[in-house]
C-alpha cells in the first residue's frame, strides 16, 4: 500500500578499528516516519552520511526508487529528492534567515537559475511559505548567527521544507526544544507526512518518537537490533536496557 522510496541493504562502514555501521538494512516509505533510535555512537549519523554520499560505504548498497545511489556525490543524492539536516545544523551563519531558505531553493550552479522571473517568484514564494510554517517570518532579515537555539533548529527545518524533497533525513531536529516548539515541530512532520514525504528521524526523546513515528529501527553498535511497531519495540526490556546504558552482557 505504501510506496517504498529508499532502501539500504547491508550498509557497512568502519573507522580504523571502530565498526560504526555494520550491515544496516533500512527502508523508508512515502508518508511514513521511521525513527532511528539507539545510544550515542550507535552509528545513526554515520548511516545518514552513507546514504547521502558524505561518506563512502565499505560495503552494502542504497537505492532511491530502485535507482542505486552508491558512489554519488552528496549534491547528486540531494537532487534525487533527499534533504537532510545536520546534528550541528550547519546554517549559513552570515546570511539572513530568508537568504538561508532561498539558497535551499536554488540548486543550479550556473551564474543564474533557470526559468527567469516566473521561476524566481515561485522560489521566493516557497521560501516565504517555509518561513511561515516554521514561525520565522518575523526574523526573515535577521542573520542566522544571531538566532536563538530553537530558532536555529527551525531554520534548519525551513531549509528542508523549501528544498521540496520527498525524502527527509533528520538528525536530532527536536533535541533541546521546549514543549511548545516541539509541538510546532511535530506539526511540521505531520504536514509533510500527509503530503507523502518519507521521513527518517533520529531522536533520543522516546516521547517524541512514540508521538511522531510509525516505525522504529533500533540501532546499537552499528546493527539494527529490532525494527517495527514503536510500542512493541519500546516495551522490549532487552532494548531498554541497551538504550539506557545498562549492558549486562558486557558487564559479565
Amino acid at each position: 500500500m505504501t510506496t517504498e522510496v529508499l532502501r539500504t541493504e547491508n550498509l557497512s562502514r568502519s573507522f580504523g578499528g571502530v565498526q560504526a555501521v555494520a550491515g544496516v538494512s533500512l527502508t523508508l516509505h512515502a508518508g511514513a516516519v521511521t525513527a532511528l533510535v539507539g545510544p550515542n555512537g550507535a552509528g545513526k549519523t554515520t548511516t545518514f552520511n552513507l546514504i547521502t554520499g558524505n561518506l563512502r560505504a565499505d560495503s552494502g548498497t542504497a537505492a532511491i526508487r530502485g535507482k542505486p545511489i552508491m558512489g554519488l556525490k552528496p549534491w547528486q543524492v540531494a537532487r534525487l529528492g533527499v534533504a537532510r539536516s545536520f546534528q550541528d545544523l550547519r546554517l549559513f551563519t552570515h546570511m539572513t534567515v530568508r537568504e538561508n531558505v532561498l539558497a535551499a531553493t536554488e540548486t543550479a550552479s550556473w551564474f543564474w537559475q533557470p526559468g527567469g522571473s516566473t521561476a524566481r517568484r515561485a522560489r521566493e514564494a516557497r521560501a516565504d511559505a517555509a518561513l511561515e510554517a516554521t514561525g520565522l517570518s518575523a526574523l526573515a532579515r535577521a542573520r542566522a548567527i544571531d538566532l536563538a537555539y530553537a530558532e536555529r533548529k527551525f531554520l534548519s527545518m525551513a531549509r528542508i521544507l523549501a528544498a521540496e524533497a520527498d525524502i527527509w533525513l533528520l538528525d536530532e531536529p527536536a533535541s533541546g526544544l521546549d514543549l511548545a516548539s516541539r509541538t510546532r515541530f511535530g506539526q511540521l512532520l505531520k504536514d509533510a507526512q500527509a503530503r507523502g514525504v518519507a521521513i527518517c528521524l533520529i531522536e533520543h526523546n522516546l516521547d517524541v518518537v512514540v508521538e511522531l513515528s510509525n516505525r522504529i529501527a533500533f540501532l546499537d553498535q552499528g546493527k539494527v537490533l529490532a525494527e517495527g511497531d514503536p510500542d512493541a519495540i519500546l516495551k522490549d526490556p532487552a532494548l531498554a536496557a541497551i538504550y539506557f546504558g545498562d549492558r549486562p552482557q558486557e558487564a559479565a
Partner: peptide, 16 residues
Amino acid sequence: QALRDAESAAEALGKN
C-alpha cells in the same frame, strides 16, 4: 556565500 559558510550543507541542498 552558502558554500563559504557551510560547504556540506550547501551540497546537501543540491548545490554542485
